[in-house]
């Protein structure tokens, strides 16, 4: 197990480096930040000064060299827009994103597994139909649409919760509710599908044929065997949330890392983009490691 973790750490570092290279050069292809930081009628001299100050006049490869050199010393560079360390900016935002992701995914996982497996057991019944249909409708509606309708309905008309922002427990309800809908629908479908497959597999049939009437036992065993694809999808959804929920953050004014990344690419704030990518990538690598560990725990044959 330790060897596996070590191997994964090394391969993750390789992936991370690949990611840095990719983002560094791709983002610099999107344009010159001086055009965005300075007003349109700023002179060429001001632009030149801006580029000089931020080392943007060097050849890209030299810039990359400088960047890696600083990075090795733990310096992620300064934000062009905010004139302070990029890592600080990112970590501030990431704390919010992490909380949002953990809370949402916990709720989603529990709800989807419970509802999904019950639906699979009662396949074809009203419960199954309604659960599938509702989750599907929810998962198919654009989230910005749901978010705005939710604000109009629950904040403006009913006055139950605040429209947006941070500050109290109540501020979290709408963003989490909106974020909940899509992964819930997706994971529920996969749980149901996977459970159906597992229920149709020989060992469950054998157990049923042998007259094991104890539903909980069947339930637990089936679930255990149905979990592998489910965990994969949960991982995928959690990764998406760790990368920030751009739309929800934008509408609810939630200071997460998703909005930060999109704003930074709009403003060509390269150091912030890179720092954000590295922080979220690290979080996702860690999570993938946990997922692989979970695979190994669920299915001893996979252990290597």
């Amino acid at each position: 197990m330790q060897r596996m973790i070590g191997k994964r750490a090394i391969s993750s570092l390789i992936s991370l480096f690949g990611l840095i290279v990719l983002v560094f050069f791709l983002s610099r292809l999107t344009g010159d930040p001086s055009a965005l930081f300075l007003p349109v009628d700023a002179s060429e001299e001001m632009r030149q000064n801006f580029r000089e100050l931020h080392g943007l006049n060097d050849p890209v490869l030299v810039q990359f060299g400088h960047y890696l050199g600083d990075l090795v010393r733990g310096d992620f560079g300064d934000s062009l827009r905010k004139a302070r360390p990029a890592l600080d900016v990112v970590l501030e935002a990431f704390v919010w994103t992490l909380q949002l992701a953990v809370i949402t995914m916990t709720l989603v996982t529990v709800a989807a597994i419970v509802v999904g497996s019950v639906a699979a057991f009662k396949v074809g019944t009203k419960f199954d139909r309604v659960a599938s249909l509702l989750s599907l409708i929810g998962a198919s509606a654009p989230d910005f649409w749901i978010a705005i309708v939710a604000i109009v309905l629950f904040s403006v008309n009913l006055g139950w919760v605040p429209t947006s922002g941070t500050g109290s427990v109540w501020h979290w309800i709408l963003p989490i509710a909106v974020l909940f809908i899509r992964p819930f629908g997706l994971i529920l479908q996969v749980v149901r599908g996977s459970m159906l497959t597992a229920l149709g597999s020989p060992y469950v049939k054998t157990a049923r044929a042998k007259g094991v009437k104890n539903r909980p036992i069947i339930f637990v065993h089936t679930l255990r065997n149905a979990m592998l694809p489910v965990i994969t999808v949960i991982g995928d959804q959690a990764a998406a949330l760790l990368n920030g929920a751009v739309v929800v953050e934008t509408i609810f004014g939630f200071p997460g890392v998703g909005k930060l990344m999109i704003d930074s690419i709009l403003q060509r704030d390269f150091n912030v983009i890179l720092a954000a990518i590295m922080v979220t990538a690290l979080a996702i690598f860690l999570m993938n490691l946990l997922i692989d560990l979970a695979y190994a725990l669920l299915d001893p044959r996979i252990r290597t």
């Binding site: 109009v152 429209t163 934008t250």
Partner: peptide, 10 residues
Amino acid sequence: RSDEAVRAAM
């Protein structure tokens, strides 16, 4: 808040 509808609602 970048969304105009939200600003008005607030």
